[in-house]
């Protein structure tokens, strides 16, 4: 279709405008992360949009190197929360993907577990806040509060619907002929699943796992309720980065924010063609 030149100008103007608006908050945080204290604590007329004297001080600070400008030393450094985030998000992803993939295969190929799809959608619909009371009671009963496994387990359950639906639509799309051929050759169903189907689904598994990981990594509320100190994740730890002595440690928080924000952005762009499928539970495939 031929479009007019004014339309093209209009298109680029609008898109670039919106792109600018959508990038400014992120860029501002990145800028703050690299500013020395004099710049990140400036306000009003002294505000600088871009660091004049870029520095890695903020990153050094959150990893425990005391700063010459800041009198405070951190009681806890960022290393442990980053590890906690990584470990719980990874384990949560493993739980969700294992249970989700096998259930998806069971439903897609054998028609078993017919009640699961609806139950899982409903699980996704409810605010986590509304089911957390029993979980907190159970978890403290089981000694899983402020425990990496306790957090991973709940992550695995909360993201199970996504893992299940993504894998189900991938299995539904996969031609059955190859599996059927292997069955005729005398392989058992289980062997076909493990030796043929799963290796073929490797890209789908990778995309789904990344999608689930992003969701787990992004959590704040659950970690806020279920961790206190040892296994506090990045967002929970971030809130503790302000004290009555220093006020808001903008630079340090921004540096931590950059560390937290970068992995999901890269992963999200890597799997962008499956985002729609994941977000709409496979109702729409791109």
């Amino acid at each position: 279709m031929q479009r007019s030149i004014p339309f093209e100008i209009f298109r680029y103007a609008v898109i670039l405008g919106i792109v600018a608006v959508s990038l400014v908050p992120t860029l501002w945080m990145i800028s703050m992360a690299f500013k020395p204290i004099a710049e990140w604590s400036a306000a009003g007329a002294d505000l600088t949009w871009w660091p004049r004297n870029p520095t890695l001080d903020n990153f050094r600070f959150i990893f425990g190197q005391s700063s010459t400008d800041l009198i405070v030393a951190l009681e806890r450094t960022a290393g442990r929360p980053i590890f906690a985030s990584l470990l719980t998000a990874t384990c949560g992803t493993l739980i969700a993907m294992t249970a989700g993939t096998s259930a998806a295969y069971g439903l897609s190929r054998f028609g078993q577990g017919g009640n699961l799809p609806l139950a899982l959608i409903q699980l996704r619909l409810f605010p986590p806040m509304a089911v957390m009371i029993p979980v907190m009671i159970m978890w403290s009963f089981l000694g899983l509060i402020d425990n990496w496994f306790g957090l991973s387990l709940i992550y695995g359950i909360v993201t199970l619907p996504f893992a299940f639906w993504l894998m189900k639509t991938f299995f539904d799309d996969m031609p059955r002929e190859i599996e059927d051929a292997a069955l005729v050759e005398g392989c058992t169903r289980w062997r076909v699943f493990v030796r043929i189907t799963l290796p073929m689904m490797r890209p789908a598994l990778a995309s789904s796992a990344l999608f689930v990981f992003i969701l787990n990594w992004s959590d704040y509320l659950i970690a806020l309720l279920l961790t206190t100190r040892d296994w506090a994740t990045i967002p929970v730890y971030m809130a503790s980065l302000s004290s009555s002595m220093t006020g808001q440690l903008y630079g340090a928080k921004a540096a931590l924010g950059v560390i937290a924000a970068v992995p999901p952005i890269i992963m999200g762009i890597a799997i962008q063609k499956h985002l729609v499928r994941g977000l709409t539970f496979g109702a729409l495939k791109e």
Partner: peptide, 8 residues
């Protein structure tokens, strides 16, 4: 344009 939705 998709970046904001992927920020934690």
């Amino acid at each position: 344009l998709l970046v904001p939705m992927m920020v934690v």
